[in-house]
Amino acid sequence: MTTAAPAPPVGTVLIVSASMGAGHDAVAAELARRLAAIGARAETVDVLALLPLRLGALMRWWYRGVMLRAPWLYALVYRVFFVSRRAPSTSPLTVVAAAGLARVVRRLRPSVVVPVFHVAAQAAGHLRARGRLAVPSVVVLTDFAVHRLWLHPGNDRYLCPDAATALAVTAAVGRPAFRCAPIVRPGFAAPGAGVPGPGAPGVRAGAADVRARIGLRDGDRIVLVCAGSWGVGRVAETARTLARSGRYAPVVLCGRNERLRRRLGRLLGGAGAGAALGWRDDLAGLLASAYALVDNAAGLTCREAFAAGVPVVTYRPIAGHGGDGVLAMARAGVSVHARRRADLLRALDRLEPGLPGRAALTARAAALFTTAPAESLLLPGLPLPGDAVPRPCAPAP
């Protein structure tokens, strides 16, 4: 008689996020929920809170202000410090962030550290390379386009959105990189979208109910326009283009930018051509009723649209990582990048239900969810799901 092998020990997972917008924290929260479901204790810290002298709050204030009022400045900073070949290999904040992270590690004694933000990845890699972090550091990349400040050879492994990103990471730092499925809440999964796991009950209202709730007419084709949690980018121009076409009703997700919501509300609501919404907790229902999503940052909302089976068109990307991200998603074949106004309308017209272009695009996006879930690649002792990710992606010889 044989006995089953004992289950591997499950310890504390320390997730290191950043309150820069809402995407990183949303990924951290969903990952923590999944880990708790398999018996792990998950703790989440904000790397900005680990910086002394309120430097984290200052960074957030500066970044938000620049993205709203002077995006050209962030584009310059990004090119010089994030992607230039002459850029420093580590952030100036790495050492101070690492000191704060070391204190948290001593207190919580985790089994693994999981950064989901680039400064956090730098800090964990710094500690690991210097022997000050005794447990593995596994970086979860939340961007398709990975700039150099995500990368530190001290980290043990990287979890990436697609094979191309994984190859680039391993080539850059020589560390194992695995593909993993996007980390989105289960309520976004659409029946028939090819995404495993049932949707959360009660989150999907009928299309007619959604239209009535946001003041649109029955039969309007809803195109969600995402501006992120801070309401950034040239989304007013996008909304105007869609409304004037007469074919689409733009519904702009303005996040917590009340000034933008009021301005677009007057522009769209007065003409009965669309709507401007503030922060929403019912995004799954809105996506389920949408014809398409128009996005400008390649962030978490795109992954949620992928899960919902909603095609994604990117247009007028925000400065810096936004531009690189939308191009990387288009190269991966999971979205369409429209460079000009006519391209935007042409791309949307080609996404009619029943046309092969829509089916192919949503199928490629849904295929992202057939790879290993991130939580299965984190904990020491848990076997890797060999059918989904048989080996780390390695650079070509």
Rank of each mutant, 00 (worst) to 15 (best):
R130A: 14
G11H: 14
V16E: 09
R358C: 01
A388G: 12
D218T: 13
C254F: 05
P6R: 15
A271Y: 08
D282N: 15
V184Y: 11
T314G: 05
G206I: 01
G206P: 09
R107P: 02
L344W: 08
R217D: 08
A36I: 00
G381Q: 11
G197M: 03
R234E: 14
A298K: 12
L58K: 00
R86G: 14
A189W: 02
V210T: 09
G246E: 15
F188G: 05
A32F: 13
L55T: 01
G269R: 06
A307W: 08
A123W: 04
A276Q: 05
P397A: 04
A363Q: 06
A57T: 02
P353Q: 03
A32Y: 11
S89P: 05
G21V: 07
A239C: 15
L355W: 12
T90V: 12
P6M: 03
T370M: 00
L351D: 03
P317A: 15
R64C: 00
R157M: 04
T371I: 00
A26M: 11
P373V: 03
R364Y: 02
R130S: 12
L286V: 04
P392C: 02
R106A: 15
H337E: 05
L93D: 01
V225R: 08
A205F: 09
I214F: 11
A40G: 03
W72R: 07
W279P: 02
A290Y: 06
R79I: 01
V96I: 15
D343S: 06
A189S: 04
L149Y: 02
D282Q: 15
I318N: 13
V313Y: 15
L141C: 10
D220C: 07
P186F: 01
Q122A: 06
R106H: 14
A18Y: 01
L264E: 05
A276L: 11
F117K: 00
L93E: 01
V116L: 05
V114R: 00
G299L: 05
A338D: 09
A298F: 10
T362W: 08
D282S: 10
G56P: 00
V203I: 11
A123Y: 03
A98N: 14
L277K: 03
A227D: 05
R240E: 12
R262Y: 01
L14Q: 12
R331H: 06
Y158Q: 04
F178Q: 09
V77Q: 07
A87E: 05
D295C: 03
A307P: 07
E237T: 13
L384G: 13
L260S: 13
A249G: 14
A177S: 06
L31C: 09
A189D: 01
A276H: 07
T90D: 08
L300G: 10
R221L: 15
A332Y: 13
G206K: 03
P136L: 04
A249V: 10
R204T: 14
P317D: 11
A273M: 07
P136D: 01
